[in-house]
Design a protein around this nucleic acid. Structure first.
Lengths: 335, 335
DNA sequence: GTTTAAAATTTAAACGTTTAAATCTATATA
DNA sequence: TATATAGATTTAAACGTTTAAATTTTAAAC
């Protein structure tokens, strides 16, 4: 990599001090320097194709103008979409984004946080993984600005941008009931993460019959949904009282479940009604249009960036807890 | 953000010079410093939870250990998957990834490159957009290490990791012919990008009848595929000799096309046979299993990182032009 | 008890910026 | 003409590291 031109080079060529060059090039308004000199400096800077060294600026200012985005998996369309919006919104605010995938593992997210902190990121947007409370607590102690997205821990006072998972789930399941479904199963992740627990809560709230509830909720592990979802479905469909509807707690679970339905020639909605939390491009091709809970991804991500930017610029102890509205998009699959 | 602890703080506490601390903490082997002192320093460093300031290191070393990844759109699963693998492979090599989306616009990619160069990235992995040759040429002149991925410009000598698009397309279309298809249309992007031209070339090579070829190839614009793909399909299916097969040049085009088929109740493969370049989760739900050209995404991304890392560590003028193999995954849609 | 060499530690400069403070240069004022 | 004042420019320190070179300390050799 060729040596880049610095203020020093310009100063030498212009026959002035580095400081003068800096004043000319870094101040918008002509602060002090004479027209003559500043014109000359700007001309030379252009000639030499000067590009300020952000690293040096960062060292000097203590700000890197970089934010760290930590999600479960950047290749998951849900997070990829968030990433894209974060990218655009961050750029508008003058920030660069460094991302990292935690694979839902606290150890990975911990490493990631340390790594990015070394890189002097100014703040974080995090979709936290299970058992990462202590990491967030530490960030708080070190007064590192951060905003949670998609998930949050109710017992920790932090900024977050999320949805009302319980309400959204309640609405969805209520819809199934309204459509006459009597035994509604749910497939969720086996995690303590609050957003998932809320979805389960909303589901439970909507159920009136208390019976069999334990068997109706199937929880699968993040790392082995390929095996666990089919098993869960089998369980829900077997026995004396097979379910007549399934509520999938995420798009990934939904996709996996629907694939299994296809393999087994289980028809939606004739054999079973379905509602999925979140959407997926894949659903567009499912033979039966799917009812799903739509999250305001774009607003979620934008808000997160804005809250973070504010927090970086004027840190306060007041936290922003933002809930955005979801929408239940009703199609044939739940009837 | 709380002030972080620096070498200075440790030095003060330990009663030694900053240099000594640096020697202890930055050298793996005990270079010179006595056991006693170095133990003490390490202990204090741990106590204070010292984390080296990468920014300062970067300024000093001229290396940021950061690479810039520029793709068309991070929210496109094709690129999101690449991003994920790049992330993992980069981490293995000690690099952080900053990403940016160009939206297939040269202007955006140009801005992005400048922006990231200011951030002192050590190198780039780029899926270049149309008319961005001059940007790459400039990078070459400035001796900035970079590797192209997915696309490349044959007239510019650069590192790249790609596939043989012509061959892959040829194979795909040949398959359609072998299955008795006689009028095979293609829907491609209207771009000068070489990879797309190669796909078209491969398609043309496979066609034997020379007639009507101009009408058989439909090119649509990146920015308005939603409108253009349906139009293109209408054209291909109307007239005296409607096509009996369509070859989609990318997964995005395929997804859009198949949606339109559904709207119009056009059946695959009865009404029309289909092959798509690239895969998509969505295809799993299409009623008819789709034949597609499978790219070795993971290897592509890994290779790109490795070539780049090598280029950064020992720059040479020799370029690596790497082609990886594709696989035609044959399903019912092309019969 | 010197001398000398080796080992341990420190000094100082550098990376490319910013910016307060100091200095220098005009010009206006008396 | 001397002086104050504003304007223009430079000096120097700082951000947190690294590292060559200089210095100091320790220990060995005589």
């Amino acid at each position: 990599m060729q040596k880049r031109v610095s203020l020093k080079d310009i100063a030498k060529k212009a026959g002035v001090s580095i400081a003068t060059v800096s004043y000319v090039l870094s101040k918008q308004k002509n602060s002090g320097v004479s027209e003559e000199v500043s014109d000359k400096i700007r001309k030379i800077a252009k000639e030499l194709n000067y590009r300020p060294n952000q690293i040096a600026k960062s060292l000097q200012s203590g700000k890197s103008h970089t934010i760290g985005l930590i999600v479960a998996d950047i290749s998951n369309p849900f997070f990829a979409q968030i990433a894209r919006i974060v990218e655009d919104e961050a750029k508008k605010n003058g920030y660069t984004v460094i991302f990292g995938s935690s694979d839902e593992k606290a150890s990975k997210s911990g490493d990631l946080i340390k790594f990015l902190l070394n890189r002097q990121v100014d703040g974080f947007i995090i979709a936290p993984s299970e058992a990462s409370e202590n990491q967030l607590q530490q960030l708080k102690e070190q007064k590192v600005p951060f905003v949670l997205i998609d998930r949050y821990f109710p017992e920790i006072e932090t900024n977050f941008v999320a949805i009302d998972n319980q309400k959204a789930a309640f609405e969805a399941v209520s819809r199934l009931k309204a459509n006459g479904k009597e035994r509604i199963g749910m497939i969720a992740y086996d995690t303590k993460l609050h957003h998932m627990k809320e979805r389960v809560k909303g589901y439970r709230d909507a159920l009136t019959s208390e019976k069999y509830q334990d068997q109706l909720l199937q929880e699968v592990e993040f790392s082995k949904i390929k095996e666990d979802v089919p098993k869960a479905i089998d369980k829900l469909l077997s026995g004396e009282y097979p379910v007549d509807a399934i509520f999938f707690a995420t798009n990934t679970l939904g996709v996996t479940g629907l694939k299994y339905f296809n393999e087994q020639n289980i028809n939606v909605p004739d054999d079973i009604a379905v509602i999925v939390f979140d959407e997926s491009e894949a659903f567009d091709f499912f033979y039966c249009p799917l009812t799903f809970v739509q999250q305001p991804l774009s607003d979620l991500a934008k808000k997160a960036v804005n809250v973070l930017a504010e927090q970086i610029n004027k840190p306060t102890d007041k936290v922003s807890k933002i809930y955005l509205n979801t929408k239940l998009v009703i199609k044939k699959s739940c009837s």
